[in-house]
Design a protein around this nucleic acid. Structure first.
Lengths: 135, 135
DNA sequence: CATGGGGGTTCCAGTTGCTGGAAGGTCAAG
DNA sequence: CTTGACCTTCCAGCAACTGGAACCCCCATG
């Protein structure tokens, strides 16, 4: 199977698939004309990668998950640990973003948004150091 | 004022301040020895930048905000619009992350996390296409 | 006066995960 | 035989820094 078909089947751009080969995530064979020849195994891996990336796993996490995926003797605890660590990072990001949202929402409410220059948003940005995040 | 003092006062690493000069966000003078000579104006700008970056504004947003900050004839509506667009992006990110969190939380709950290879997390990742995000 | 340490300077490379584009080889159809 | 859709490689660039090398500057101490 050529890269175009694999792109269609996996939902990943061909560029991305080449990149994944570059960094050693998949190792397709080559036809005599130099074209990549993907087997079902690689297609499955690429689908796996697409899904893992969509869940926000880093490439290095994906590499580890893929290794576990292929390892029949894996312990599910190893998979779970990676997922839990990733979840932790996501939850931290959500907390950070929620804090930003709260502050921004507040500032936007306060700002008249008219033709005059007075602006609580700029006033806040100009003030150094840790202000409370909302209120 | 030298870069070290400015770094201390603004809370930004010296490296970052140099980078901000590189991309034209601040334009410190130079002493005869080649050292950057920051005036209060630049310190204020850097504090502004630090705060804006902490709220997640992109560098290009920061550039625009800084221009408005310096423009006495600005309309607060222009500031507000930038902030609102940024808030929109943040809220979108939060939605995306919440979806990931829901899926991951669910998968983690399902996974035994023991020495056996069976793993609902890997099973999910291996399945192509759009699954529902939680449940 | 030499030396040491703590500033400062520049420039280059690396990070993450691709993405775009140039320049070219291959192949099936008309 | 040419067109057009594929495929190939390689190089550059995005965001926003960060680390490091190699170097300069200045002051204090012995």
């Amino acid at each position: 199977m050529n890269i175009g078909d694999v792109a269609a089947r996996s939902g990943l751009p061909a560029k991305t698939i080449r990149y994944y080969e570059d960094i050693g995530l998949v190792k397709p064979l080559r036809d005599s004309n130099g074209y990549r020849a993907f087997r079902e195994k690689e297609v499955h891996k690429l689908i796996f990668l697409g899904r893992a990336r969509a869940l926000g796993f880093s490439i290095e996490d994906c590499r580890a998950l893929l290794a576990l995926y292929e390892d029949e003797t894996r312990a599910s605890a190893d998979v779970k640990r990676i997922a839990e660590q990733h979840l932790e990072r996501i939850e931290q990001k959500i907390r950070d973003l929620n804090a930003m949202r709260a502050t921004l929402t507040h500032l936007i409410e306060e700002c008249a948004g008219d033709h005059r220059p007075d602006c609580p948003i700029l006033e806040d940005l100009a003030r150094p150091g840790g202000r409370k995040v909302a209120g």
